[in-house]
Amino acid sequence: MAASGTGVSWKARLRCALLRGTPQGLQGAGRCASVDAAKSGHSRPGADNPIHSHSPGNSSVSFARVCAMQISFRGKKVVVTGASRGIGWSIALAFATEGADVAICARGAQGLEAAEVELRRHGGAVFAMPCDLAEASAPASFVAGAVKALDGIDILVNNASGIGMRDDESGWRAGIDVDLMATVRATQTAIPFMEKAGGGVIINISSISGFRAVPRTLPYAAVKAALINYTMGQGLALAPKRIRVNAIAPGSIEFPGGVWDNRKASDPQLYQRTLDGIPWGRFGTPEEIARVALFLASEMGSWVTGQTIVVDGGQLLASRTGPSATLPAS
Rank of each mutant, 00 (worst) to 15 (best):
V117H: 06
K39H: 06
A109L: 00
C131A: 15
Q269M: 06
L270P: 03
G7P: 08
G111R: 00
E288G: 13
R166Y: 02
T285M: 14
F211S: 10
R15T: 10
H122G: 06
N204I: 08
P268V: 03
K148S: 15
V223L: 06
F95Y: 14
R263Q: 12
I155K: 11
A103W: 01
T189F: 11
A17E: 09
D179C: 07
P328G: 01
E254D: 14
A136N: 08
H122W: 15
A94C: 15
A182H: 08
S59E: 03
P268A: 10
I153C: 05
W10A: 02
G41I: 14
S53M: 01
V61T: 04
R244S: 08
V66D: 01
A106K: 01
S9G: 13
L275H: 06
A293T: 05
E135I: 15
V311M: 11
G306H: 10
G277P: 05
Y271D: 01
N229K: 14
L156E: 09
H122P: 04
G152D: 10
L218F: 07
F95S: 09
S170W: 04
S324Q: 10
G28H: 15
S137M: 12
S209Y: 08
G21E: 09
N229M: 13
I153P: 02
G175F: 03
A138G: 13
A138E: 02
R185E: 14
P45Y: 14
R85W: 02
I104L: 00
R65Y: 11
N246P: 06
T22L: 14
A225R: 09
F283P: 00
V79H: 06
Q110E: 06
P328C: 02
H122L: 15
G251S: 11
I248Y: 06
L26P: 05
G123S: 05
E135T: 11
A138R: 09
A64V: 05
A221C: 12
F295A: 05
K77E: 04
Q234P: 04
P50S: 02
T285V: 11
Q234W: 15
C32I: 09
S266W: 04
W10R: 01
A103K: 00
Q315C: 05
